[in-house]
Amino acid sequence: MTAISMAERMEEMASSAPAAEYIPRFGIQQRIQHFLMMTSFLLLVFTGLPQKFNDASLSQWWMGVLGGVDNARMVHRFAAWTMIIDCLYHISYIAFSTVALRRKFPIWAIPSLKDAQDLFHDFEYFFGRRTDRPRFGRFSYLEKFDYWAIFWGIPVIAGSGLILMFPVAATKFLPGVAVPVAFLAHSDEAVLAVLWVFIVHFFFVHLGPHVFPFNPSMFTGKMSREQYKVLHPLELEEMEAREGRRLAKQERDEVATASASQESAPVAADASHVAGEQTEGQSA
């Protein structure tokens, strides 16, 4: 976490909550992970799609712009390794923060019964049987779907990509048919991923009625209180309740320490630091 965003967050945490305009949503680690995923994905798409649709004249033109299929493949492989490393980074980040830092396991990202209920609720709303939308916590069922679709897509596309990158080595322990299967799966899974990102992900995240035309929270790390109230009301309520408890505790501590000695300031700073860590653990 950079000094600036840490300072911002501490400020937001420390100041009395309702007045703050923005609420921190994603830590710097998560933003880096998303940025690497996004850039490597775009590079993979722009160097991969013309290889799949190789007979289209647009692909031929684009290959010329890239300086030939060899250049495109070099970029494709570089981006592929970036994405693979990014995914390993993501997994180790979760493992490290739960095992080593003893933060709470990000259970709020795991699909639950409430997600099915929310989906049903949403359909009732779409068909006019209800006037309210479901109230979401940290992640809505759509966001979870978005995350897990990629989570399961990655092993398929990376695994098949590695088979295609090292076909001779792969057939040392896989049957030969693995190569044409990988060839097919790699390109079809890629088409699914492209359509998914450019239709589903874009709509859920950016083009929805409350965020249109662009939701910058994954890049800035924060979201306005107004949006938070609409998109993640349950999480906001939890945060406010926790903040209220923390403030009450702080008040009690201050009363206690003020009567004991004059050195209360460092303790208060320490306490707000701990609170900041906890929030980041949650957003994992």
């Binding site: 001779v168 057939t171 040392k172 049957p175 030969g176 693995a178």
Partner: peptide, 10 residues
């Protein structure tokens, strides 16, 4: 290089 019969089955 190093292609096996298994590889050529691809």
């Amino acid at each position: 290089e190093g292609a096996t019969p298994q590889f050529s089955n691809a």
